[in-house]
């Protein structure tokens, strides 16, 4: 059970939406308590102390209390040290936030994922290549929420994947050696799956296979619901 009051914990704002006339509901992702929805009372008033601090992609120090599902936010201040995101980095940030909003259960702590998220934001702000970073975060997230995909052995034969063999990836199970009777699933080279297993997304081949595979796995775990941020990122890139 959650304690009634949590003081000065590091958290990121994932999303917020208007609540009543002057307040906000904020979805925080805190290091020790995971995703926690809170009401930020009066945060939409012009002089509110919370108003300027409640910004996504910045590490915040927050204090909240409450025993119900939605807590009450008492204070939030910038910790500093994280440059603002810009351009495509922002859109990638929104995508990460939406993934976490959809896949993380409330008040389920994920300190390692929290650190991976902070690291990803720092790299996005530094202008790092975003594709490898997105793939590695997606895989991290799937593992954290208990959907770790098998990437290193054939789930039928139990044998380790071979670099030069080709595999089908069965969504609910994992890789099996490619076989014509399994129909037209995409073929994945063993070396790409093995690279993903070790978190190595440096080769363009791994990256392009990982993109399709992660999309398929995430869609499956979201029950086929589309991600808004992904649609919008694609529309923006097509401009």
């Amino acid at each position: 059970m959650s304690r009634a009051r949590v003081d000065h914990e590091t958290a990121f704002l994932l999303h917020s939406y208007p609540w009543r006339e002057t307040s906000l509901i904020v979805e925080m992702f805190s290091r020790e308590h995971g995703r926690v929805p809170m009401v930020a009372k009066g945060a939409r008033r012009p002089g509110s102390m919370l108003r300027g601090a409640l910004m996504s992609f910045q590490p915040l120090e927050v204090t909240w209390s409450g025993k119900g599902e939605v807590k009450t936010l008492h204070s939030a201040s910038w910790q500093g040290g994280q440059a603002l995101l810009g351009g495509i980095g922002l859109l990638c940030g929104y995508y990460l936030n939406e993934l976490m909003l959809r896949l993380l259960a409330r008040e389920d702590p994920h300190p390692e994922l929290f650190d991976a998220y902070a690291e990803a934001l720092a790299r996005l702000a530094g202008g790092g290549a975003h594709e490898p970073l997105l793939r590695s975060f997606e895989l991290n997230l799937l593992r954290e929420v208990g959907y770790a995909p098998t990437l290193d052995h054939d789930v039928e034969s139990g044998e380790a994947l071979r670099e030069h063999a080709e595999y089908f990836f069965l969504t609910e199970r994992g890789p099996v050696e490619a076989d014509a009777k399994l129909g037209d699933l995409p073929l994945l080279p063993g070396r790409a799956l093995l690279a993903m297993a070790t978190g190595d997304f440096s080769s363009p081949e791994t990256l392009s296979h990982a993109k399709g595979l992660m999309r398929r796995l995430i869609q499956y775990h979201l029950g086929g619901q589309a991600l808004e941020s992904r649609r919008i990122l694609m529309e923006l890139q097509a401009l």
Binding site: L91, N97, E228, S229, R231, I232
Partner: peptide, 14 residues
């Protein structure tokens, strides 16, 4: 633009 609320270039009539 507000990607988590589904507001993209089409909704804003870029």
């Amino acid at each position: 633009l507000s990607p988590l609320d589904g507001i993209g270039p089409r909704e804003l009539k870029f």
